[in-house]
Design a binder for these strands. Sequence first.
DNA 1: CACGATCAATTACAGGTGTAAACATAACAC
DNA 2: GTGTTATGTTTACACCTGTAATTGATCGTG
Lengths: 121, 121
Amino acid sequence: MAISEAEAVVMNVLWREAPHTAEEILAEVGPAQGWQEGTVKSLLNRLLRKKAVRAERDGRRYLYTPLLTRQQYVSQESKGLLDRLFGGRVAPLVAHFSEQRKLSKKDIAELRKLLKELDDE
Amino acid sequence: MAISEAEAVVMNVLWREAPHTAEEILAEVGPAQGWQEGTVKSLLNRLLRKKAVRAERDGRRYLYTPLLTRQQYVSQESKGLLDRLFGGRVAPLVAHFSEQRKLSKKDIAELRKLLKELDDE
DNA sequence: CACGATCAATTACAGGTGTAAACATAACAC
DNA sequence: GTGTTATGTTTACACCTGTAATTGATCGTG
């Protein structure tokens, strides 16, 4: 089942470092998102139900670890967008950003490097 | 207000060619999506409420025309994804696809061409 | 052992979505 | 003009989301 945007915020914390307790996650995202304890707990529960994380008891609390990998999530999401908007292909998306002048110098440099490396294989 | 995925399917028809009647839209997407008449009508109404399309009476029916442009929609959606997953930048997304071996030959060729053109400006 | 503190689990609730059924209205055919 | 047909509008309804408040379980403390 797809994980929602709010849920992804929680996953992001766990992808950076795991395991974490609910409290730690709250400390990390609560302020920025304006979330309270119950919110994070709910999101964790939904992620559990969706098998995106697993919880392991540690005394009175739980330690949460991601089951869904960031790779998997990123792939799903990107593919979804590409399929919906660009016929499933990458180049048209880059072209779109290029037309909109949204490619930074850094982007361009990195893309050049990337293509060069592809050459060498 | 954001338009949903099902709504985007309808918009896609109108972006290809407009205006269209509800019936024509149904004919185009109904079979593929397994949608019936009521579904398309509802989606059109929600799009009207969201000011994403406008309707112009034509005898007994309406002709629907997009107000939200494909450009606008694509920009919103792509930016959202990039911000959420790739720090708002294009190159990391392409890198992701490259790592996953999801760049087709055609993609690579087009990207090369694109970068070359950027050079010439 | 009873009590408060600390967590997690359950329940809540409004708003969005997917998917229509039901209802209203207007035009056309007789 | 009245009934049928073609359209659009309203209402429905279950599920997902964001965001908690409430309830329940457990642990440490006196």
